[in-house]
Amino acid sequence: MQKQIFIGLFPLGTVVVTPGCMEVTSEEERISALTRHVNGDWGGVSDCDKQYNDEAMEDEGRLLSAYLTSSGLRFWIITEWDRSVTTILLPEEY
């Protein structure tokens, strides 16, 4: 049985992490970024993407955030439009 996680502004659904992202991020980095994401801190995305995310909060669109590891590697968090799945991944794994 899968549980919906709802700890912030929207439900995360099932949270998954890609193998590549597991290799280059620590659990602490993933949890910190996920906490920021679910609280509407979109990290290092463009102003256009921030605006899209803010609108998607109302219109049920996909949400995209971008963060950096302590070593400066970029990773993304994407929550699907229906809030069923949130994926933590590297940009090249998209």
Rank of each mutant, 00 (worst) to 15 (best):
Met1Ala: 13
Met1Tyr: 13
Met1Leu: 11
Met1Asp: 15
Lys3Glu: 15
Lys3Tyr: 08
Gln4Glu: 15
Gln4Gly: 04
Phe6Lys: 14
Phe6Leu: 08
Ile7Gln: 14
Ile7Lys: 14
Ile7Thr: 15
Gly8Cys: 01
Gly8His: 03
Leu9Val: 03
Leu9Trp: 00
Phe10Ser: 05
Phe10His: 11
Pro11Trp: 05
Gly13Met: 09
Gly13Ala: 07
Thr14Arg: 14
Thr14Asp: 07
Thr14Leu: 15
Thr14Met: 13
Thr14Tyr: 05
Val15Pro: 07
Val15Tyr: 11
Val15Phe: 12
Val15Asn: 11
Val16His: 10
Val16Asp: 10
Val16Leu: 15
Val17Glu: 13
Pro19Lys: 12
Pro19Tyr: 08
Pro19Asp: 14
Gly20Tyr: 00
Gly20Val: 06
Cys21Met: 12
Glu23Lys: 15
Thr25Arg: 10
Thr25Lys: 06
Ser26Lys: 06
Glu27Met: 03
Glu28Met: 09
Glu28Pro: 01
Glu29His: 08
Glu29Val: 03
Glu29Thr: 03
Arg30Lys: 12
Ile31Met: 04
Ser32Gln: 08
Ser32His: 02
Ala33Glu: 01
Ala33Val: 01
Ala33Phe: 04
Leu34Cys: 05
Leu34Gly: 04
Leu34Val: 02
Leu34Ala: 02
Thr35Pro: 02
Thr35Met: 07
Thr35Phe: 04
Arg36Gly: 02
Arg36Asp: 11
Asn39Leu: 03
Gly40Asp: 02
Asp41Phe: 00
Trp42His: 02
Trp42Asp: 03
Gly43Ser: 00
Asp47Glu: 01
Asp49Ala: 10
Asp49Gln: 03
Lys50Thr: 00
Lys50Arg: 11
Gln51Lys: 04
Gln51Trp: 00
Tyr52Thr: 08
Tyr52Gln: 09
Tyr52Met: 05
Tyr52Trp: 00
Tyr52Asp: 10
Tyr52Gly: 03
Asn53His: 03
Asp54Thr: 00
Glu55Cys: 09
Ala56His: 11
Glu58Met: 07
Glu58Val: 02
Gly61Tyr: 11
Gly61Cys: 05
Arg62Trp: 10
Leu64Trp: 06
Ser65His: 03
Ser65Asn: 07
Ser65Tyr: 04
Ser65Asp: 06
Ala66Met: 10
Leu68Gly: 06
Leu68Gln: 15
Thr69Phe: 09
Thr69Pro: 09
Ser70Asn: 13
Ser70Phe: 07
Gly72Val: 11
Leu73Gly: 04
Leu73Val: 13
Trp76Ser: 00
Ile77Arg: 05
Ile77Trp: 04
Ile78Ala: 00
Ile78Pro: 01
Thr79Ser: 14
Thr79Ile: 13
Thr79Trp: 11
Glu80Pro: 09
Trp81Glu: 14
Trp81Arg: 14
Trp81Val: 08
Asp82Glu: 12
Ser84Cys: 15
Ser84Gln: 12
Ser84Gly: 10
Val85Asp: 05
Val85Ser: 09
Val85Met: 14
Thr86Leu: 09
Thr87Trp: 06
Thr87Ser: 14
Thr87Met: 15
Ile88Phe: 09
Leu89Lys: 14
Leu89Arg: 12
Leu90Thr: 13
Leu90Gln: 11
Leu90Cys: 13
Pro91Gln: 12
Glu92Phe: 06
Glu92Asn: 07
Glu92Leu: 10
Glu92Ile: 08
Glu93Gly: 08
Glu93His: 08
Tyr94Leu: 07
Tyr94Gly: 13
Tyr94Gln: 10
